[in-house]
Design a protein around this nucleic acid. Sequence first.
DNA 1: AATTAGAGTAACAAGAAAAGTTGCATGAAA
DNA 2: TTTCATGCAACTTTTCTTGTTACTCTAATT
Lengths: 164, 164
Amino acid sequence: MRRDSRLSRSLHLLIHMDRFPDPVTSDHLAKMVATNPVVIRRMMQGLKKTGLVSSGKGHGGGWVLAKPLAEITLLDVHEALGATVVFNIGLADDNPQCLVERAVREKLTQAMSEAEGVLLQSFASIRLSDIASDFETQLAALGSDQNRLPICIPERASKADQVD
Amino acid sequence: MRRDSRLSRSLHLLIHMDRFPDPVTSDHLAKMVATNPVVIRRMMQGLKKTGLVSSGKGHGGGWVLAKPLAEITLLDVHEALGATVVFNIGLADDNPQCLVERAVREKLTQAMSEAEGVLLQSFASIRLSDIASDFETQLAALGSDQNRLPICIPERASKADQVD
DNA sequence: AATTAGAGTAACAAGAAAAGTTGCATGAAA
DNA sequence: TTTCATGCAACTTTTCTTGTTACTCTAATT
Ligand code: FES
Ligand code: FES
């Protein structure tokens, strides 16, 4: 089965975006995660509708966070992506009138929605800033080896004043 | 993504099998859930290895439960099926060296394994006999309309004495 | 005004995983 | 020895995500 990796991918990008002073183009984001710019735009549509990011067209355009990382939870992103089904376990519909099948579906649905509740509650309790600070911690721990890491650096930042 | 419906399907069939006095052939099981006998055999292989069912070849062969329903939990079946991944949410591996991606993966993994734990614990607490009795309850509630339902009846049972 | 850089979008191609299908080998009962 | 069944391997179909192409629309730069 091919798992939907948009959540993980968009979290990664949103956190990077926070460190960019200027709007980041779909092209740039696409290169960061080795994919196609259209995939990025598609993924971002939901986030835009929910007001997590905003986009600018034309020259100098691109994507920017519409909120600080501390005000975005994993749940926000999950839902903005159009949260499909969380589980890889499906309920067969082989014989809809069969009471046995129905009883099975009921029990499974119950167990799965309980677990889904736990997951979503976790998601709600984690802010993107939490992940960002995990990242900062790891980064700091590396000390002087930092520059050996492929941390994606703002493209257009070089034109601007290097702020601190 | 196409969700794995083997759990739901095998639960359904196992519970039915319990009501059959004789071994049930893959062909029969396949018809019950509108699929191909090979799909049934494939699904049953895992259950057989774990000792939940056993199979007989040749004339008069087929599948029988190797344990009473009360001694089989959803978790047993889930694991016997070769329990792939429970979630439909994937961890992107777009830039394995990126510490941001790594931090994202870590948090997601953590949240997901917590929820998976809850699910598996539910599974462990539900025995197939629990589902079977739900079914019996529903059936009884229908009263005299029972015979209008498409409850799959043992094929070869007609040859045997009608037990009670 | 012309050029360039960007998002927005639809339509299509590729990839992957589950499910379904076919064909044949093997074993057991009748 | 014939018939009925599982066991298995190889292939096809289906369905969903991802990737790609081609084009339109918009805004800044020149
Ligand atoms: S994508 Fe995370 S460092 Fe470049
Ligand atoms: S398959 Fe459940 S009643 Fe026939």
